[in-house]
Amino acid sequence: MIAYIIRRILYAIPILIGVNLITFALFFIVNSPDDMARMHLGMKRVTDEAIVKWKQDHGYDRPLVYNGDQPGLSKVTDTIFFQNSVRLFVFDFGVADNGRDIGFDISQRMWPSLAIALPTFLTGLLVYITFALLMAFFRATYIDVWGVILCVMLMSVSGLFYIIGGQYLISKMLHLVPISGYDDGVHAFKFLVLPVLIGIVGGVGGSSRWYRTIFLEEIGKDFVRTARAKGLRETTVLFRHVLKNGMIPILTGVVVAIPLLFIGSLITESFFGIPGLGSYTIDAIGSQDFAIVRSMVFLGSVLYIIGLILTDISYTLVDPRIRLQ
Protein backbone atom coordinates (compact mmCIF):
# COMPACT_ATOMS: atom_id res chain seq x y z
CA MET A 1 0.00 0.00 0.00
CA ILE A 2 2.89 2.37 0.78
CA ALA A 3 4.22 1.94 -2.76
CA TYR A 4 0.76 2.73 -4.07
CA ILE A 5 0.54 5.90 -2.00
CA ILE A 6 4.01 7.04 -3.08
CA ARG A 7 3.06 6.40 -6.69
CA ARG A 8 -0.12 8.43 -6.28
CA ILE A 9 1.82 11.29 -4.70
CA LEU A 10 4.26 11.28 -7.61
CA TYR A 11 1.34 11.32 -10.04
CA ALA A 12 0.13 14.42 -8.25
CA ILE A 13 3.16 16.49 -9.28
CA PRO A 14 2.33 16.76 -13.00
CA ILE A 15 -1.32 17.29 -12.08
CA LEU A 16 -0.39 20.20 -9.85
CA ILE A 17 1.87 21.70 -12.51
CA GLY A 18 -1.02 21.45 -14.95
CA VAL A 19 -3.45 23.03 -12.51
CA ASN A 20 -0.99 25.86 -11.94
CA LEU A 21 -0.55 26.41 -15.63
CA ILE A 22 -4.29 26.50 -16.26
CA THR A 23 -4.87 28.87 -13.32
CA PHE A 24 -2.10 31.08 -14.59
CA ALA A 25 -3.47 31.11 -18.14
CA LEU A 26 -7.05 31.77 -17.05
CA PHE A 27 -6.04 34.57 -14.71
CA PHE A 28 -3.80 36.39 -17.16
CA ILE A 29 -6.24 36.05 -20.04
CA VAL A 30 -8.63 38.20 -18.02
CA ASN A 31 -6.17 40.39 -16.11
CA SER A 32 -2.97 41.92 -17.35
CA PRO A 33 -0.23 43.01 -14.90
CA ASP A 34 -1.20 46.60 -15.76
CA ASP A 35 -4.79 45.91 -14.70
CA MET A 36 -3.56 44.38 -11.46
CA ALA A 37 -1.35 47.39 -10.76
CA ARG A 38 -4.22 49.78 -11.44
CA MET A 39 -6.52 47.85 -9.15
CA HIS A 40 -4.01 47.81 -6.30
CA LEU A 41 -2.97 51.41 -6.69
CA GLY A 42 -6.56 52.60 -6.57
CA MET A 43 -8.62 54.08 -9.31
CA LYS A 44 -7.73 57.73 -8.79
CA ARG A 45 -4.65 59.51 -10.04
CA VAL A 46 -2.76 56.39 -11.11
CA THR A 47 0.21 57.38 -13.24
CA ASP A 48 2.14 55.22 -15.73
CA GLU A 49 5.24 55.57 -13.56
CA ALA A 50 3.35 54.23 -10.56
CA ILE A 51 2.17 51.24 -12.60
CA VAL A 52 5.70 50.46 -13.78
CA LYS A 53 7.01 50.76 -10.23
CA TRP A 54 4.31 48.52 -8.82
CA LYS A 55 5.00 45.84 -11.40
CA GLN A 56 8.72 45.97 -10.67
CA ASP A 57 8.16 45.65 -6.95
CA HIS A 58 5.79 42.73 -7.32
CA GLY A 59 7.73 40.87 -9.99
CA TYR A 60 5.14 41.41 -12.70
CA ASP A 61 7.57 43.23 -14.97
CA ARG A 62 8.87 39.91 -16.30
CA PRO A 63 7.45 38.11 -19.35
CA LEU A 64 4.63 35.72 -18.52
CA VAL A 65 6.09 32.32 -19.46
CA TYR A 66 9.10 32.83 -21.73
CA ASN A 67 11.89 35.36 -21.38
CA GLY A 68 13.72 35.58 -24.69
CA ASP A 69 16.15 38.20 -23.36
CA GLN A 70 17.70 35.83 -20.85
CA PRO A 71 20.30 33.15 -21.56
CA GLY A 72 19.85 29.40 -21.09
CA LEU A 73 17.48 28.16 -18.45
CA SER A 74 16.69 31.69 -17.37
CA LYS A 75 14.47 31.96 -20.43
CA VAL A 76 12.03 29.81 -18.49
CA THR A 77 12.92 30.59 -14.90
CA ASP A 78 12.99 34.39 -15.17
CA THR A 79 9.27 34.57 -15.87
CA ILE A 80 6.20 35.41 -13.86
CA PHE A 81 4.94 31.85 -14.08
CA PHE A 82 8.10 30.18 -12.80
CA GLN A 83 8.90 32.72 -10.13
CA ASN A 84 5.40 32.55 -8.75
CA SER A 85 4.72 28.84 -9.06
CA VAL A 86 7.79 26.94 -8.04
CA ARG A 87 7.69 27.95 -4.39
CA LEU A 88 4.19 26.58 -4.04
CA PHE A 89 5.54 23.05 -4.22
CA VAL A 90 7.24 23.53 -0.86
CA PHE A 91 4.07 25.23 0.42
CA ASP A 92 5.72 28.64 0.47
CA PHE A 93 2.73 30.72 -0.58
CA GLY A 94 4.66 33.97 -0.45
CA VAL A 95 3.17 37.41 0.01
CA ALA A 96 -0.13 38.63 -1.39
CA ASP A 97 -0.10 41.56 -3.74
CA ASN A 98 -1.41 43.70 -0.88
CA GLY A 99 1.63 42.76 1.20
CA ARG A 100 0.02 40.20 3.52
CA ASP A 101 1.68 36.87 4.18
CA ILE A 102 -0.61 34.31 2.53
CA GLY A 103 0.49 31.34 4.64
CA PHE A 104 -0.28 33.28 7.78
CA ASP A 105 -3.69 34.33 6.49
CA ILE A 106 -4.54 30.75 5.54
CA SER A 107 -3.46 29.48 8.93
CA GLN A 108 -5.69 32.07 10.58
CA ARG A 109 -8.72 31.62 8.38
CA MET A 110 -8.89 27.86 8.07
CA TRP A 111 -9.95 27.30 11.69
CA PRO A 112 -13.23 29.23 11.51
CA SER A 113 -13.97 27.40 8.26
CA LEU A 114 -13.29 24.13 9.97
CA ALA A 115 -15.38 25.15 12.97
CA ILE A 116 -18.44 25.23 10.73
CA ALA A 117 -17.55 22.57 8.23
CA LEU A 118 -16.56 19.81 10.64
CA PRO A 119 -19.69 19.75 12.84
CA THR A 120 -21.86 20.23 9.77
CA PHE A 121 -20.09 17.36 8.08
CA LEU A 122 -20.11 14.92 11.01
CA THR A 123 -23.57 15.71 12.35
CA GLY A 124 -24.92 15.92 8.85
CA LEU A 125 -23.53 12.52 7.98
CA LEU A 126 -25.12 11.04 11.06
CA VAL A 127 -28.47 12.66 10.33
CA TYR A 128 -28.46 11.78 6.64
CA ILE A 129 -27.53 8.15 7.21
CA THR A 130 -30.03 7.81 10.04
CA PHE A 131 -32.81 9.32 8.00
CA ALA A 132 -31.89 7.19 4.98
CA LEU A 133 -31.84 4.04 7.10
CA LEU A 134 -35.19 5.02 8.57
CA MET A 135 -36.68 5.37 5.10
CA ALA A 136 -35.07 2.12 4.02
CA PHE A 137 -36.39 0.38 7.11
CA PHE A 138 -39.90 1.63 6.48
CA ARG A 139 -39.60 1.20 2.73
CA ALA A 140 -42.88 1.28 0.86
CA THR A 141 -44.73 2.66 3.87
CA TYR A 142 -46.10 6.15 4.37
CA ILE A 143 -42.91 7.12 6.23
CA ASP A 144 -40.81 6.23 3.21
CA VAL A 145 -43.16 7.98 0.80
CA TRP A 146 -43.36 11.16 2.84
CA GLY A 147 -39.67 10.96 3.59
CA VAL A 148 -38.86 10.93 -0.12
CA ILE A 149 -41.34 13.74 -0.77
CA LEU A 150 -39.71 15.73 2.01
CA CYS A 151 -36.29 15.02 0.54
CA VAL A 152 -37.35 16.19 -2.90
CA MET A 153 -38.88 19.31 -1.41
CA LEU A 154 -35.73 20.08 0.55
CA MET A 155 -33.57 19.43 -2.49
CA SER A 156 -35.64 21.84 -4.53
CA VAL A 157 -34.98 24.80 -2.26
CA SER A 158 -31.98 27.02 -2.91
CA GLY A 159 -29.22 26.95 -0.31
CA LEU A 160 -29.42 30.71 -0.07
CA PHE A 161 -33.06 30.47 0.95
CA TYR A 162 -32.13 28.26 3.91
CA ILE A 163 -29.61 30.85 5.03
CA ILE A 164 -31.83 33.89 4.66
CA GLY A 165 -34.91 32.05 5.96
CA GLY A 166 -32.96 30.58 8.87
CA GLN A 167 -31.55 33.95 9.83
CA TYR A 168 -34.96 35.54 9.57
CA LEU A 169 -36.74 32.88 11.60
CA ILE A 170 -34.20 31.87 14.22
CA SER A 171 -32.33 35.11 14.71
CA LYS A 172 -34.70 37.86 13.75
CA MET A 173 -38.11 36.51 14.77
CA LEU A 174 -37.22 34.17 17.64
CA HIS A 175 -34.07 36.02 18.80
CA LEU A 176 -32.34 32.80 19.69
CA VAL A 177 -28.85 33.23 18.25
CA PRO A 178 -26.88 36.08 16.69
CA ILE A 179 -27.55 36.65 13.01
CA SER A 180 -23.88 36.75 12.14
CA GLY A 181 -20.47 37.08 13.69
CA TYR A 182 -17.74 34.97 15.14
CA ASP A 183 -15.71 34.61 18.30
CA ASP A 184 -12.88 32.45 19.52
CA GLY A 185 -13.01 29.29 21.59
CA VAL A 186 -16.21 28.28 23.33
CA HIS A 187 -17.73 31.67 22.62
CA ALA A 188 -17.89 30.65 18.97
CA PHE A 189 -20.65 28.17 19.83
CA LYS A 190 -23.53 30.63 19.67
CA PHE A 191 -22.37 31.85 16.27
CA LEU A 192 -21.98 28.33 14.88
CA VAL A 193 -25.33 26.86 15.92
CA LEU A 194 -27.32 28.42 13.13
CA PRO A 195 -24.92 27.94 10.19
CA VAL A 196 -24.34 24.35 11.23
CA LEU A 197 -28.08 23.71 11.59
CA ILE A 198 -28.77 25.32 8.23
CA GLY A 199 -25.91 23.39 6.66
CA ILE A 200 -27.37 20.13 7.91
CA VAL A 201 -30.95 20.92 6.94
CA GLY A 202 -29.84 22.13 3.54
CA GLY A 203 -28.14 18.82 2.84
CA VAL A 204 -30.81 16.47 4.18
CA GLY A 205 -32.75 16.20 0.95
CA GLY A 206 -30.02 15.26 -1.48
CA SER A 207 -27.83 13.18 0.79
CA SER A 208 -30.57 11.18 2.51
CA ARG A 209 -32.20 10.35 -0.76
CA TRP A 210 -28.88 9.22 -2.23
CA TYR A 211 -28.05 7.09 0.80
CA ARG A 212 -31.57 5.63 0.80
CA THR A 213 -31.04 4.47 -2.77
CA ILE A 214 -27.76 2.83 -1.77
CA PHE A 215 -29.35 1.07 1.19
CA LEU A 216 -32.35 -0.11 -0.81
CA GLU A 217 -30.01 -1.59 -3.37
CA GLU A 218 -28.17 -3.47 -0.65
CA ILE A 219 -31.39 -4.59 1.03
CA GLY A 220 -32.43 -6.41 -2.11
CA LYS A 221 -29.26 -8.48 -2.26
CA ASP A 222 -28.94 -12.16 -1.43
CA PHE A 223 -26.79 -11.76 1.66
CA VAL A 224 -29.47 -9.62 3.28
CA ARG A 225 -32.10 -12.24 2.53
CA THR A 226 -29.76 -14.85 3.99
CA ALA A 227 -29.27 -12.75 7.10
CA ARG A 228 -33.00 -12.44 7.58
CA ALA A 229 -33.42 -16.15 6.93
CA LYS A 230 -31.01 -16.76 9.78
CA GLY A 231 -33.48 -14.93 11.96
CA LEU A 232 -31.48 -11.79 12.61
CA ARG A 233 -33.35 -8.77 13.87
CA GLU A 234 -34.07 -6.10 11.27
CA THR A 235 -31.88 -3.57 13.08
CA THR A 236 -29.01 -6.01 13.06
CA VAL A 237 -29.52 -6.60 9.37
CA LEU A 238 -29.58 -2.89 8.72
CA PHE A 239 -26.62 -1.82 10.81
CA ARG A 240 -24.33 -4.82 10.47
CA HIS A 241 -24.98 -5.84 6.92
CA VAL A 242 -26.75 -3.18 4.87
CA LEU A 243 -24.90 -0.17 6.33
CA LYS A 244 -21.51 -1.84 6.20
CA ASN A 245 -21.91 -2.97 2.62
CA GLY A 246 -23.33 0.39 1.60
CA MET A 247 -20.26 2.17 2.91
CA ILE A 248 -18.19 2.04 -0.29
CA PRO A 249 -20.38 4.32 -2.36
CA ILE A 250 -20.90 6.54 0.69
CA LEU A 251 -17.18 6.76 1.34
CA THR A 252 -16.56 7.66 -2.30
CA GLY A 253 -18.43 10.88 -1.81
CA VAL A 254 -17.59 11.52 1.81
CA VAL A 255 -13.88 10.92 2.36
CA VAL A 256 -12.84 13.01 -0.60
CA ALA A 257 -14.63 15.94 0.99
CA ILE A 258 -12.82 15.71 4.33
CA PRO A 259 -9.64 17.60 3.39
CA LEU A 260 -11.70 20.19 1.56
CA LEU A 261 -13.47 21.07 4.80
CA PHE A 262 -10.59 23.47 5.43
CA ILE A 263 -11.47 25.46 2.33
CA GLY A 264 -14.81 26.57 3.73
CA SER A 265 -17.99 27.75 2.11
CA LEU A 266 -18.26 31.08 0.37
CA ILE A 267 -21.95 31.83 0.84
CA THR A 268 -22.30 30.51 4.38
CA GLU A 269 -19.25 32.37 5.61
CA SER A 270 -20.26 35.52 3.83
CA PHE A 271 -23.78 35.61 5.26
CA PHE A 272 -22.77 34.59 8.75
CA GLY A 273 -19.69 36.81 8.94
CA ILE A 274 -17.41 33.85 9.57
CA PRO A 275 -13.80 34.86 8.93
CA GLY A 276 -12.94 31.66 7.09
CA LEU A 277 -11.26 30.72 3.86
CA GLY A 278 -14.53 30.59 1.95
CA SER A 279 -14.37 34.13 0.70
CA TYR A 280 -10.59 34.38 0.56
CA THR A 281 -10.32 33.21 -3.05
CA ILE A 282 -13.35 35.14 -4.24
CA ASP A 283 -12.11 38.34 -2.61
CA ALA A 284 -8.73 37.76 -4.23
CA ILE A 285 -10.30 37.32 -7.66
CA GLY A 286 -12.26 40.52 -7.11
CA SER A 287 -9.14 42.43 -6.13
CA GLN A 288 -7.07 40.73 -8.87
CA ASP A 289 -4.61 39.34 -6.34
CA PHE A 290 -2.99 36.58 -8.33
CA ALA A 291 -0.71 35.54 -5.47
CA ILE A 292 -3.71 34.49 -3.38
CA VAL A 293 -5.63 32.97 -6.29
CA ARG A 294 -2.79 30.68 -7.32
CA SER A 295 -2.12 29.69 -3.70
CA MET A 296 -5.74 28.81 -3.00
CA VAL A 297 -6.20 26.89 -6.23
CA PHE A 298 -2.98 25.01 -5.51
CA LEU A 299 -4.07 24.25 -1.96
CA GLY A 300 -7.49 23.13 -3.15
CA SER A 301 -5.88 20.79 -5.68
CA VAL A 302 -3.52 19.32 -3.12
CA LEU A 303 -6.36 18.74 -0.67
CA TYR A 304 -8.48 17.15 -3.36
CA ILE A 305 -5.68 14.79 -4.30
CA ILE A 306 -5.20 13.92 -0.63
CA GLY A 307 -8.94 13.30 -0.41
CA LEU A 308 -8.81 10.89 -3.32
CA ILE A 309 -5.90 8.99 -1.81
CA LEU A 310 -7.71 8.81 1.53
CA THR A 311 -10.78 7.51 -0.26
CA ASP A 312 -8.76 4.69 -1.79
CA ILE A 313 -7.29 3.87 1.59
CA SER A 314 -10.71 3.91 3.23
CA TYR A 315 -11.94 1.31 0.74
CA THR A 316 -9.42 -1.14 2.10
CA LEU A 317 -10.68 -0.51 5.60
CA VAL A 318 -14.33 -1.23 4.88
CA ASP A 319 -13.90 -3.92 2.25
CA PRO A 320 -11.23 -6.51 2.96
CA ARG A 321 -11.42 -7.72 -0.61
CA ILE A 322 -9.79 -4.51 -1.86
CA ARG A 323 -6.00 -4.34 -2.00
CA LEU A 324 -4.02 -1.28 -3.08
CA GLN A 325 -1.11 -2.29 -5.27
Binding site: Q167, I179, G181, S270, S279
Partner: peptide, 16 residues
Protein backbone atom coordinates in the same frame (compact mmCIF):
# COMPACT_ATOMS: atom_id res chain seq x y z
CA UNK B 1 -16.04 47.50 13.36
CA UNK B 2 -17.32 44.06 12.40
CA UNK B 3 -16.95 42.50 8.99
CA UNK B 4 -20.46 42.07 7.59
CA UNK B 5 -20.44 41.57 3.86
CA UNK B 6 -24.09 40.93 3.26
CA UNK B 7 -26.68 43.64 3.54
CA UNK B 8 -29.42 41.45 5.05
CA UNK B 9 -27.62 40.44 8.26
CA UNK B 10 -26.21 43.94 8.56
CA UNK B 11 -29.63 45.51 8.33
CA UNK B 12 -31.22 43.07 10.76
CA UNK B 13 -28.46 43.60 13.29
CA UNK B 14 -29.05 47.32 13.07
CA UNK B 15 -32.76 46.79 13.74
CA UNK B 16 -31.87 44.60 16.71
Amino acid sequence: YKLDKESIPLWNKFLQ
